Simulated scan of single mutants.
Amino acid sequence: MTTEDLLRGLAPRVLTALVRHHGDFDACEDAVQEALLAAAVQWPRDGVPANPKGWLITVASRRRIELWRSDAARRRREETAAVLEPAGSAPAPAADDTLTLLLLCCHPSLTTVSQVALTLRAVGGLTTAEIARALLVPEPTLAQRVSRAKASIKASGAAFRLPPPAERAERLAAVLHVLYLIFNEGYTASSGPALNRVELSAEAIRLTRGLHALLPEDGEVTGLLALMLLTDARRPARTRADGALVPLADQDRTRWNAAAITEGTALITHALATAPIGPYQLQAAIAAVHDEAADAAATDWRQILGLYELLETLAPSPMITLNRIVAHAMVHGPRAGLDLLAAPPPALAGHHRLHAVRAHLLELNGDLPAARAHYEEAARRTLSLPERRYLKSKATRLPT
């Protein structure tokens, strides 16, 4: 394990220890970031301490106290500040409060974008610069976003404890949604020169794996982890050496990650047999059907269509509807899919994927000039350069 991996694994536990002891999420998070930076410099040079978690807690706590003492408004409270023991011997709480920290980062007072940024920083242990690069936003903008998120949590009066049972399911759903968004942005970047941002998808898998360890019997947590593994398993075959996109039907399946497929399939099989069915489980089941097919022609599209119909009932969304139409076309023919696209979901009216799907079905149906026009329109609308190049290549092969 590298120093970077060790620090990212320890970051949420160190932060939870500080917040539990001192309160004030904002100041504690800043102190932990400084401790992580100090460790990143010192540990490769001096060696990892015998008690790395205790070392980080000690350094971060001392920095937190320094920040406290520098605040004139709190100077009178100096005498009550905790005096920690020398580095390496600080007590390291046994409890793992990662779930509590995730729930706090996904507090309902925050926007989804702020939840994503704060989760990556506080729980993922990524620096502001790393998150800004991954999300393709300027570092000052990201820093302001994180700062506002922490201020919002402080203003809400949220305490560092698990929410009451009545709120827990809704808050956990927000956590899963944030992890899902992080993974999707990493697996298929919404903009920029690269198709993948591996640092984001890998971080989402790591965080979801940790959440699954805390809640192993939760069907949706298991489903989300399975979905990520089954989807990410295809990543090695999604691009050529020059970065060009390779669609699912054309991928070399021998390059897929067999271990990830095996693990993901086992997870979703167990979840479907033991837990109430939820949207992430259904998406994972769809991914498993794709991954189990020896080649594109062997894909069980009838099973996929049935799963999408159930998914659309449980968690309707414009993109799920579009995917269900694709599956319908693969079962009943491209003309049937085009008939359904005659009245697409209004939310997808300007989305490049709607034009790409219509182009694909028109091509299958033999209307090549119309297919070319929609491929060109899809290429104009996407912000992803690999997708744009792929769609333009599809268009240039067809007559006008």
Rank of each mutant, 00 (worst) to 15 (best):
T2K: 11
G9I: 00
V14H: 02
A17K: 12
V19M: 05
H21N: 10
G23A: 02
A27P: 00
L36W: 00
V41P: 01
W55V: 03
L56F: 07
T58A: 13
A60C: 08
L67Q: 15
W68Q: 09
R69F: 03
S70K: 12
A72H: 11
R76W: 10
R76Y: 09
R77L: 15
R77A: 15
E78G: 09
P93M: 06
A94L: 12
L104H: 09
T119H: 06
T119S: 10
A122F: 07
G124S: 05
A132M: 04
V137D: 07
T141S: 13
R148G: 13
S152Q: 11
A159L: 15
A159R: 15
F160S: 05
E167L: 14
E170G: 10
Y180T: 07
Y187T: 01
L200A: 05
L214M: 11
D218S: 11
M228P: 02
R234A: 11
R238V: 00
T239P: 04
G243K: 04
P247C: 01
L248N: 01
T254K: 03
W256H: 13
T262L: 12
E263K: 15
L267F: 07
L272E: 10
T274Q: 04
A275R: 09
P279Y: 01
A288H: 05
H290R: 10
H290E: 13
A293F: 03
A297Q: 12
W301N: 06
L310Q: 14
P316A: 10
I320Y: 11
L322W: 02
R335S: 15
A343W: 00
P345W: 01
L354F: 04
H355G: 05
V357L: 10
E363K: 14
L364R: 15
D367P: 02
A370C: 01
H374K: 07
S384T: 08
L385D: 14
E387Q: 15
